[in-house]
């Protein structure tokens, strides 16, 4: 997905994990994905560099679709579609 397409997504769940270091964002993502339905879109906000690689790999392994990452100033937004 392009950056514009990611920005335009309707998000069903947004998780703000910018206050925590690894493994905080991953744990927040794991908890939150249990609360949404298959096909829903979730965004995770993280300021932890490790999360950029960690969450896409985790998502693919768990059968969710990694849609892409948008870099903001000082943090980034990771988009997933629940499988």
């Amino acid at each position: 997905m392009t950056q514009e397409e990611l920005q335009a997504l309707t998000v069903n769940k947004s998780v703000d994990a910018r206050g925590t270091a690894c493994p905080g964002p991953l744990l927040e993502a794991k908890k939150a994905i249990g609360t949404i339905n298959s096909g829903d879109i979730m965004e995770i906000l993280s300021a932890d560099e490790g999360t950029k690689r960690d969450i896409p790999k985790w998502a693919n392994k768990k059968g969710h679709e990694y849609l892409g990452t948008v870099e903001e100033s000082g943090y980034f937004k990771i988009y997933l579609k629940k499988g």
């Binding site: 493994p23 991953l26 744990l27 993502a29 985790w58 768990k62």
Partner: peptide
């Protein structure tokens, strides 16, 4: 503890 939490995220 960090490793365990990673394992937990992975079920």
């Amino acid at each position: 503890g960090v490793i365990l939490s990673g394992a937990a995220a992975d079920d």
